[in-house]
């Protein structure tokens, strides 16, 4: 197995947007292996666009986007799928399979990767325990509170121990207790060596240790 590259994310002069509107203009930055990076910005600043760009779901008009050593724009659909399977994603608004149980939702990345049902179950049980959701394993996601849903999303994003976690405003709309629980999960993944990129519109204590950037008028400004 090849050693993952030390630079996990690399953006150079990236321009992207929707229709005639450019949301990101000339964005350049990089994230190293095991690094914690936070991108701040007001609503509509382009944080979600940045995350989608890194996942290959948003076209890049100019510049270069490299994630996990590969040029995202040049990936074949298979390569893109393979890249996405190595990333943990936390969506801004929680996304689940509403008709499946919390346990199944937590193990989704493993199931998608074709891991056996027994292994999925064992690792999902562990992940739910870490997220404090053991008692909710048989429930369905809509039955969970907002905080629990946030923790479930993070548990799902971390279950396959990805090298890179992209979290799009994971603490938005969470109360302080839920924020602390979510932060703890991400901190554990970071301590294990995962690079984490978090977008947010308000810094938290956990993010004080992070390399900070700010998205302003489509440009990325380094803060630390």
């Amino acid at each position: 197995m090849t050693e993952p590259p030390s630079i996990i994310i690399e953006l150079a002069n990236v321009v992207s947007g929707y229709g005639a509107r450019a949301v990101l203009t000339g964005v350049s930055f990089s994230v190293r292996k095991g690094e914690l990076v936070v991108v701040e910005g007001a609503t509509g600043a382009g944080k979600t666009t940045l995350i989608r760009l890194l996942l290959g779901a948003q076209p890049c008009r100019a510049g270069m986007v490299r994630v996990l050593g590969g040029d995202v724009a040049r990936h074949t659909p298979e390569a893109l799928t393979s890249m996405r399977r190595q990333i943990g994603v936390v969506f801004q608004s929680p996304q689940f399979l509403a008709q499946e149980t919390v346990m199944t939702n937590a193990g989704l990345p493993l199931q998608i990767a074709g891991v056996s049902a027994e292994v999925c179950r064992a690792r999902a049980t562990r992940a739910l325990m870490d997220a404090g959701l053991t008692g909710s394993a048989r429930k369905h996601p809509p039955q969970l509170s907002g905080g629990e849903q946030a923790r479930l999303q993070i548990a799902r994003a971390l279950i396959h121990q990805p090298q890179l976690v992209l979290a799009d405003e994971p603490f938005a709309h969470l109360d302080p207790d839920s924020t602390a629980a979510a932060e703890e999960l991400l901190a554990t993944a970071h301590a294990r060596g995962a690079a984490i990129l978090i977008t947010t519109h308000g810094p938290t204590r956990f993010l004080e240790r992070a390399a900070r950037y700010r998205l302003d008028n489509g440009r990325l400004i380094g803060l630390t």
Partner: peptide, 16 residues
């Protein structure tokens, strides 16, 4: 559509 997109972002292939 929203479900398909989030599954695709988690790495679900067009084949599945």
């Amino acid at each position: 559509r929203a479900t398909w997109e989030f599954l695709a972002l988690l790495g679900l292939s067009q084949r599945i």
